[in-house]
């Protein structure tokens, strides 16, 4: 299982490269799923060029995130910007917009086309829809359970897929459909983390317990997830610590550790302060 790590700026790319197998990035002039987090995007084409060169120099693959929907009014401009970034030679693109995917296919784009988790691909028919548009790998939606994905794999064996590191990155609501997360249009909204009140009692939007999220990560790894994604949100130090930790977890799973033993080892790690 490879580790793919989000990069927010050139300065951190050199620090992350030794710990990740692959990197991914977005740019401020092509909308991506970090619209309200400007600091999580590279600012210029020049920076993107340097990042691609740095990653390749370190022997790392690098993907470009263009995973939003692009309106008709600005599609030509968006497409030109996307093509400018792709001309820099990243190894692939992460996307969800069917019109963008169709255009890339018609243009004969030869890199990896990775379907964003926000494309809500929960079944084989959705997979077929996007495969027909040139998609070659899929980032699984966080709310898709391993048991459900196993059924898809039975129908479409050999599908290349990756997962987020669920213990750290798990939206309470379904990503790609959620209106609440940025309904107030403010930078770094994170609305789903904030409490609401039910009959005067404070509550939070629920995620599965941390133990269950580790277990889902384990199950997805056992199903053959090709990559695990460490998102762009945390600081670079935290992302490096997570990458080191995730690699150890992946090694334990590869060695054939059983689910209970895996969970026990994780609990010990948390107890020892290796992971919050």
């Amino acid at each position: 299982m490879k580790i793919i790590c989000g990069v927010n700026g050139l300065s951190e790319a050199g620090r992350l490269a030794p710990y990740a197998d692959e990197l991914y990035f977005g740019v401020s002039f092509v909308e991506n799923h970090r619209k309200w987090y400007p600091w999580q995007n590279l600012r210029t084409l020049g920076e993107a060029a340097e990042l691609v060169s740095l990653a390749h120099g370190a022997g790392r693959k690098v993907l470009f995130a263009a995973n939003e929907l692009y309106p008709r009014a600005s599609f030509s401009r968006d497409m030109r910007n996307i093509e400018k970034v792709l001309a820099l030679g990243p190894d692939g693109v992460i996307a969800r917009d069917m019109n963008l995917l169709g255009r890339l296919k018609r243009n004969g784009y030869g890199g990896e086309v990775c379907l964003s988790s926000t494309a809500i691909c929960f079944n084989s028919e959705t997979l077929d829809l996007f495969s027909g548009l040139g998609v070659s790998s899929v980032v699984l939606p966080q709310h898709l359970k391993a048991a459900e994905w196993r059924r898809v794999l039975r129908r479409r064996p050999g599908t290349r897929f990756e997962v987020f590191f669920y213990p750290d990155c798990y939206c309470p609501n379904m990503d790609g459909l959620c209106v609440y997360h940025d309904v107030n249009r403010t930078p770094e909204p994170r609305n789903c983390w904030k409490p609401y009140f039910l009959g005067g009692k404070k509550e939070f939007m629920r995620k599965p317990p941390i133990r269950e999220r580790y277990l889902e990560f384990y199950r997805m790894a056992r199903l053959g997830a090709e990559r695990v994604k460490i998102a762009r949100d945390a600081g670079v130090g935290e992302r490096i610590r997570t990458a080191v930790f995730v690699r150890e977890l992946a090694d334990r799973i590869k060695k054939g550790t059983g689910a209970s033993e895996f969970l026990r080892s994780v609990e010990l790690d948390i107890w020892n302060g290796r992971k919050s």
Binding site: Y70, P71, F75, M98, A119, I120, L177
Partner: peptide, 16 residues
């Protein structure tokens, strides 16, 4: 409405 939201502005053009 969920699918409409997921398709969003991509409904304005192309094959969609």
């Amino acid at each position: 409405r969920l699918l409409a939201g997921a398709l969003g502005v991509s409904m304005q053009h192309g094959q969609v």
